[in-house]
Amino acid sequence: MSTVDNRYTLREFVEQTQQRDRGEGFFEMESPRILEVNLRNNYVWTKMGSMISYLGNIRFEREGVFDKGIGGFLKKAVTGEGARLTKANGTGKLYLADFGKKIQILRLENQEIVVNANDVLAFESHVTWDIKMMKRVSSMMAGGLFQMTLSGTGMVAITTHYEPLTLVVTPEQPVYTDPNATVAWSGTLSPNLKTDITFRSMIGRSSGESFQMEFIGNGFVVVQPFEEVYQAQG
């Protein structure tokens, strides 16, 4: 006599994967790779192209090229899609994701963090932001070395490939990282580009074996077990 196997029914699938309200506030982790943003007649800045679904009345507006002034326009002209933002405004539930990357929610309390521009998923409207490029970086390396500085008080969501690792930096213990595996660092740090090889040997190489980011001072650095390679875009 056969028995009915209820493990794979549509009903069970819906129950296991359906959206759930957890009452966690403005940012809510719907899953490790999907962020829910609860809008109530306000707005949030999101990475362009990260919206996968929404409920309610939400309008989307691409950030104007001159929203951050002429300097901001020139920065965005060379940072590519990774640094471009969309303003989601209204009331409802907004769902964001970025190529299945893992999402980390951070609460800033009058603090500053610097994040690889491509790894910023979303942040609250009252968080101050700016785009910067590492000093002394040649154009051949610039594709993945743009960062977004986020400061103030509010929620920020960033993404990582797989599980991140946070390393503590002290004056006695500097930290060296592969630029393509570096996700974020505390605003108290100003990294330097470090290399011990000649310019000729760097031609055609883009990995951390060629050059490293050097962090000295007091703070932390977040890295991921994955090397992202970017191409600068016009």
Rank of each mutant, 00 (worst) to 15 (best):
M133S: 15
M141P: 00
M133Y: 14
E112D: 10
T149W: 04
A117S: 15
M141V: 09
D130H: 03
A142I: 15
V115F: 07
G144D: 06
V114N: 05
M148E: 09
S139L: 09
S138P: 01
W129S: 08
I131M: 08
D130A: 09
T128Y: 00
M141I: 12
M155Y: 10
V137W: 05
D130R: 09
G144I: 07
S151P: 01
D130Q: 11
R136I: 07
G154T: 04
I113P: 00
M155L: 13
H126S: 04
E112W: 10
N118G: 15
A142S: 14
D130M: 06
Q147N: 09
M133N: 15
K132L: 12
D119N: 15
G143I: 11
H126T: 12
D130S: 14
V115P: 05
Q147H: 12
L121D: 02
V120S: 09
N116C: 05
R136E: 14
E112Q: 15
M141W: 10
A117I: 08
A122I: 15
T128C: 00
F146A: 06
M133R: 15
G143M: 07
G154Y: 01
H126V: 03
M140V: 12
M140R: 12
G144A: 11
N116S: 10
A117Y: 11
L121Y: 08
L121E: 05
V137F: 07
K135P: 06
A142Y: 06
G143A: 13
T149Q: 07
T128L: 01
M155T: 08
T153G: 02
S151A: 08
S138T: 13
M140Q: 08
M134V: 05
G143N: 12
F146L: 06
A122N: 10
N118R: 15
E124T: 08
N118I: 03
V115I: 14
M133F: 14
M155K: 12
K132P: 01
M133V: 15
G144N: 09
N116Y: 05
E124P: 01
R136Q: 14
T128H: 02
S125H: 10
V137I: 14
H126R: 11
V137A: 11
T149A: 05
V114T: 13
V115W: 05
S138H: 10
H126N: 11
M141L: 12
G143T: 10
M148P: 00
S139H: 05
Q147D: 06
E124G: 04
G144R: 07
S125E: 09
S125D: 09
M140H: 07
R136A: 14
V114C: 04
D119V: 06
G144E: 03
